[in-house]
Nucleic acid binder design. Structure first.
Length: 626
DNA sequence: CACTCCTTAT
């Protein structure tokens, strides 16, 4: 028995047993992934008598406060036990609040830190600046700017860059620029923050001035400026800048590829888009799921469903956004059944559909008139995946029912849905009233929609068209007057056609094209030809009706017809014409396009604001519902 | 022991 009381001598380890255990524990802590695991490590650290050790507790707090699987309240409990928490620990809690969107608490914790005489370091102020920025706390933000200087971080890049971000967010553009100008050493972050900030507020000239002032432009800077143009619909500027970039031998990376693809998509510039895809493949740019999605979207919106599908199927790993985008693409092209098939494929590959998947799927059902299927999936998403229908889903359902002529049912959905219908949902109902010429309901909804979005010209136009159908010319004139009084301008209509890689743009009645004379002659010839095939210009009431495209131009010269005429002039017989326009196809152009496809034996693919129209053999894929 | 900028889609 006595031997038990003897300490058996062991060889001396280089570190003391306690340190060694702590080291192992901290390593274990770094690798734990759940709160319950963490609590076990925490308990062991306490047993070692380290419950007040900043170094050890700092790690515990870091886990709880900043990781997805953490628990901010637990972090705060640990914090409260610490007699002298250090700067790192304060910073970590501030970051925890920030990540949880508890912005005021974040700033408050910083002042608590100062009250306890703990000095901020270079990590502290960027966090607090961000909190003020996200909270739109202008006064506090200015004070923190003072602290940056007072505590000696006037030359710290992170603080400065975050200040730029904050002032941009406050719309204090001069102040943002001043911070940049006073920076000792500006970097990509400083420049791109300011460029994209200016661009978001629409100040493109200012953004370009900043860009131009950069002596050594990195690809990040180039992309910031390119995407600034893209986001402001200045596609030609984006292309011009891209070309300049190429001529200066800057290498395309995945960011630039994505921005340029987005420009091609919005413009309908298929050839250019394909060229970018080629570059991506050639230069082995990392094809992440964002870039893959962008490429799929480009093919879909440029009218090449086949290529989109081919690319999609060839992807090794398909992210959820790629699936969603592909389903959305099928929806736009009126391929509802194929969209449903793709959902099933997704399920059989054990990819869980999400909120967006069902928005796109329901939109596919709506565009293809799949009423029963649409209703089914509206319930199915909740039953099978626990996804509560949101505003967009209700919008699709209303669209689906409304298009099918089930206006009462659609209206009941609007009344009974758990949230207040937004403009999107009401707009869908209004659209249905237009299709089915329900003046009574359309008038009520139209007025609501206009007041919800008084600057959106399309809403006025829709109601005015409805009045025009009813022959209520006085009301049409009143709408027009209302628009004038409020200074609402109709978006100028334009159509774009891409031929041999050259994108040509047409505006209604525009004569600036170098070959305008030939094009107009072709339009006249075209219209004569289809007249013999039964085309009757939709001129009833034209003098009074408000069209989406400018009224002062004769109907025949809508941008879409000019683009088609130009396409017929410039391509060989049988070639497919792809046209992209910014507004909805008007009734007359739709009818004309159908007949042109027959008489000239051409497939014409038109992308309008909402969807695609494939004109072939005198028919349209939208089955005249759009 | 750690922080900020440029990319897509609905």
């Amino acid at each position: 028995m006595a031997s038990i009381l003897h300490v058996i001598p062991t060889p001396q380890s280089p570190a003391s047993p306690k340190t060694k255990t702590l080291g192992t524990l901290l390593r274990g802590l770094a690798s734990c992934s759940t709160m319950s695991e963490l609590k076990q490590f925490h308990a062991q650290i306490i047993k070692l008598g380290l419950s007040c050790d900043n170094d050890a507790m700092g790690r515990v707090i870091k886990f709880c406060a900043t990781l997805e699987s953490g628990d901010l309240n637990y972090a705060l409990q640990v914090f409260d036990k610490l007699p002298n928490p250090d700067t790192f620990i304060y910073n970590t809690i501030i970051r925890g609040y920030l990540q949880s969107q508890l912005l005021k608490e974040s700033v408050l914790f910083y002042s608590q830190m100062l009250e306890c005489s703990v000095s901020p370091n270079n990590f502290t102020l960027p966090l607090v600046i961000r909190a003020c920025c996200m909270d739109n706390a202008v006064e506090e933000g200015k004070q923190i700017h003072g602290h940056v200087i007072k505590f000696g971080f006037g030359f710290d890049k992170f603080s400065q860059n975050n200040l730029i971000h904050m002032y941009v967010n406050f719309h204090f553009l001069e102040e943002a620029k001043r911070v940049l100008d006073n920076m000792y050493e500006k970097d990509d972050v400083s420049w791109t923050t300011l460029i994209s900030g200016f661009a978001q507020l629409g100040y493109l000239a200012e953004a370009f001035r900043v860009f131009d002032s950069i002596s050594e432009k990195s690809s990040v800077c180039w992309n910031a400026m390119i995407s600034a143009y893209v986001h402001n619909n200045q596609f030609h500027q984006a292309f011009a800048l891209f070309e300049r970039m190429m001529s200066e031998d800057v290498v395309i990376d995945k960011f630039i590829a994505a921005s340029m693809l987005s420009a091609c998509t919005r413009l309908g510039a298929l050839k250019q888009g394909e060229w970018i895809v080629e570059q991506v493949e050639k230069s082995r740019i990392d094809l992440d799921s964002k870039l893959a999605t962008t490429i799929i979207d480009m093919y879909c919106k440029c009218g090449c469903l086949d290529k989109a599908l081919q690319f999609f199927k060839g992807l090794r790993r398909k992210g959820i956004s790629s699936w969603n985008c592909m389903i959305g693409g099928l929806a736009m092209h009126g391929k509802g059944e194929a969209a449903i098939e793709l959902l099933k494929e997704m399920e059989s590959e054990r990819v869980a559909p999400d909120y967006i998947t069902f928005v796109n799927l329901l939109s596919a059902c709506a565009h293809s008139g799949l009423i029963e299927e649409g209703k089914h999936y509206f319930h199915y998403m909740k039953e099978a995946y626990g996804i509560e229908p949101g505003m967009e889903h209700y919008g699709c359902l209303v669209d689906l029912l409304g298009r099918a002529g089930l206006l009462e049912e659609a209206r009941n959905i609007v009344k009974e849905m758990p949230m207040n219908a937004d403009v999107g949902v009401l707009g869908a109902l209004l659209g249905a009233c237009r299709i089915h010429k329900n003046i009574e309901l359309g008038e009520i909804i139209g007025k609501q929609v206009i007041e919800l979005e008084p600057q959106n010209s399309g809403r006025y136009v829709l109601l005015a068209n409805l009045y025009a159908y009813a022959g209520r010319w006085e009301d049409v004139a009143n709408i027009r007057k209302l628009m004038n009084d409020r200074g609402v301008k109709k978006a100028p209509g334009f159509s774009v056609v891409e031929l041999e890689g050259v994108v040509s743009e047409f505006t209604a009645g525009g004569r600036t094209h170098p070959q305008a004379k030939e094009i107009y002659a072709k339009v006249n010839e075209m219209l004569d030809c289809i007249k013999s095939a039964g085309y009757v210009p939709d001129s009833d009431g034209l003098q009074q009706d408000i069209d989406e495209e400018e009224r002062e131009n004769p109907l025949y010269y809508h941008s879409e017809k000019l683009a088609i005429a130009f396409g017929l002039l410039k391509t060989k017989p049988g070639a497919v014409l792809r046209i992209t326009k910014n507004l909805r196809v008007c009734k007359d152009c739709h009818q004309a396009s159908k007949l042109i496809s027959k008489v000239y034996d051409r497939e014409i693919i038109v992308r309008d604001r909402n969807r695609f129209h494939h004109f072939k053999d005198g028919e349209c894929s939208c089955k005249d519902y759009w």
